[in-house]
Amino acid sequence: MTTSREGDIVTSDKVLFGLNLETGVDQVSEILRHARTADDAGLDLVSISDHPYFADRIDAYATLAFVLGATRNVTAATIMTNLLSRPAPILARTVTGLSTISGGRFVLGIGAGGLWDEIVALGVPRLSPADRVRALEEAITVVRALSGGGEPVTFDGEFYQIADLMPAAAPPPPIWVGALGPKMLAVTGRHADGWIPGHLADWRSPEVARARPIIDEAAASAGRSPADIATIYNVSGRIGRETLSQTRDEDGRWLGGSVAQWVEELTFAVLEHRAAAFVYLQAPGEIISDTIVNLWAHEVVPAVREATAAR
C-alpha cells in the first residue's frame, strides 16, 4: 500500500495480521477467548464469516458487536458479508454504527454471494452471475454514499433505490472485496480498498497471477493507483515446531509447516508479491487450538513483522 485514509487500519508501512474466529453456536467461549487473545497479542484484526442461512452458526454482525465490545484495539471484519440478505442501505447503517461505537475498528468484507441455494432459502430472489456483480457495485456505491456526512442522498439504481436519505457522520469503513471472476475483479479495481482472492488462492497461485493485473488495469482506468488496493490473503495449514519436508501439495496449495517455514513463506509473499495482510483461519466447524493461536500470534506474526519492517 502507498496511501491511507484517516480511520483505516491499512497504512503505507504496515502488513496486517489477523485471525478468523469460529462461528458455531457451540463455540461462543472460543470466539470470545480467541478474540481477546488476538487483541492482547497485538494482532491487527479478527474476522468472521457471514452465513445467516445456517442455523448452527451465529449471526456474523451480532457476533462482531460482542467481539468489539470485548476488545480494545483489534479491528473486526466480515469476510465475507452475505450481501443480498443485507440490503445495502441497511448494511450502510450497520457498518457505520459499528465503526462509530468501536472508534473505527471495523472493515467491511463483501462479495457477490456464493451458496445460492442457501441464500434463496432466506427469501432473496435468485440473481444471475452478471446481476450479482452489478448489485455488488451498486451496494459499494450506496455504502460509501451513506457514510461520511454531507447532504441527503438520492440513488435510483437497478437494485437499490433511496430518496433524500441522510448519510451517517462516520466515514465509510475500508471495503475489501472477495473476487476471482474478471467482472468482479474489475469492480474491485474501480471501488475497493482491498482484494481477497477466493478459495485460499495465494501469492504463488496462477489464479492470483492472472487476476491481479485485471484489478490494476481497472483501477488505472478509473483514475486510481493500483497500489491503493491491498491484497489480503486467507491462510490455513499446520503451524508447529517440526520442519516439514513438503509445505505444498501436488496442486501447489500451502499445507503449512514449522514456525520458521511460515515466517520464510509469508516474508517472501510480502517482499516479492506485495501481500498486504494475512488472516489465519480453520475450516468451518473446527476450533482453532490455543496452541495454534499462540504460535501464530506470538511467534509467526512478530517474526514476519520484523523481517519485513525495512521493506
Results as ranks from 00 to 15, higher is better:
residue 3 T to I: 08
residue 10 V to C: 09
residue 10 V to D: 01
residue 11 T to G: 15
residue 12 S to G: 10
residue 13 D to C: 06
residue 26 D to P: 02
residue 27 Q to R: 04
residue 28 V to D: 07
residue 29 S to Q: 11
residue 30 E to P: 02
residue 31 I to T: 10
residue 34 H to D: 13
residue 35 A to M: 13
residue 39 D to M: 04
residue 40 D to S: 13
residue 42 G to S: 11
residue 45 L to M: 15
residue 45 L to E: 02
residue 47 S to A: 14
residue 47 S to T: 12
residue 47 S to K: 09
residue 47 S to N: 05
residue 48 I to V: 14
residue 48 I to Y: 00
residue 49 S to C: 11
residue 51 H to E: 07
residue 52 P to M: 08
residue 54 F to S: 03
residue 57 R to E: 04
residue 60 A to M: 00
residue 60 A to S: 12
residue 62 A to Q: 09
residue 66 F to V: 15
residue 67 V to I: 01
residue 67 V to Q: 00
residue 69 G to S: 06
residue 71 T to H: 02
residue 72 R to G: 15
residue 72 R to D: 14
residue 82 N to G: 09
residue 87 P to V: 04
residue 87 P to T: 09
residue 93 R to G: 11
residue 94 T to V: 11
residue 98 L to A: 00
residue 99 S to T: 12
residue 101 I to H: 07
residue 103 G to S: 13
residue 106 F to R: 00
residue 106 F to Q: 01
residue 108 L to Y: 03
residue 110 I to N: 01
residue 110 I to V: 12
residue 111 G to K: 07
residue 112 A to L: 06
residue 113 G to A: 04
residue 113 G to R: 07
residue 116 W to A: 03
residue 117 D to H: 05
residue 118 E to M: 13
residue 118 E to I: 01
residue 119 I to W: 06
residue 121 A to E: 14
residue 123 G to E: 07
residue 123 G to M: 06
residue 123 G to H: 04
residue 124 V to D: 07
residue 135 A to S: 10
residue 138 E to F: 06
residue 139 A to Y: 04
residue 141 T to V: 15
residue 143 V to F: 13
residue 144 R to K: 14
residue 144 R to I: 02
residue 146 L to M: 06
residue 147 S to Q: 02
residue 148 G to V: 12
residue 151 E to S: 13
residue 151 E to N: 15
residue 156 D to M: 08
residue 165 L to N: 02
residue 166 M to Y: 08
residue 170 A to L: 03
residue 171 P to W: 10
residue 171 P to A: 09
residue 172 P to V: 08
residue 172 P to L: 01
residue 173 P to T: 07
residue 174 P to F: 04
residue 174 P to S: 15
residue 175 I to Q: 05
residue 175 I to K: 10
residue 175 I to R: 02
residue 176 W to A: 04
residue 177 V to Y: 07
residue 179 A to S: 08
residue 179 A to M: 02
residue 181 G to N: 15
residue 181 G to W: 00
residue 193 D to R: 02
residue 198 G to T: 14
residue 199 H to Y: 15
residue 199 H to M: 15
residue 201 A to F: 00
residue 201 A to Q: 14
residue 206 P to N: 11
residue 209 A to C: 08
residue 210 R to A: 14
residue 211 A to Q: 15
residue 213 P to K: 12
residue 214 I to P: 08
residue 217 E to L: 04
residue 219 A to W: 11
residue 219 A to C: 13
residue 220 A to N: 09
residue 222 A to G: 10
residue 225 S to A: 12
residue 227 A to T: 10
residue 227 A to E: 11
residue 229 I to G: 03
residue 229 I to A: 00
residue 231 T to D: 09
residue 232 I to F: 13
residue 233 Y to M: 13
residue 236 S to M: 06
residue 237 G to P: 05
residue 240 G to N: 03
residue 242 E to R: 03
residue 242 E to K: 13
residue 251 D to V: 10
residue 253 R to G: 12
residue 255 L to H: 09
residue 255 L to V: 04
residue 257 G to P: 11
residue 260 A to Y: 00
residue 267 T to F: 11
residue 271 L to G: 03
residue 271 L to R: 07
residue 274 R to T: 12
residue 274 R to N: 14
residue 275 A to R: 07
residue 277 A to H: 05
residue 280 Y to K: 04
residue 283 A to R: 10
residue 284 P to E: 00
residue 284 P to F: 00
residue 286 E to W: 01
residue 288 I to E: 14
residue 290 D to I: 12
residue 297 A to T: 09
residue 301 V to R: 00
residue 304 V to T: 02
residue 305 R to V: 04
residue 306 E to K: 10
residue 307 A to G: 06
residue 310 A to I: 02
residue 311 R to M: 07
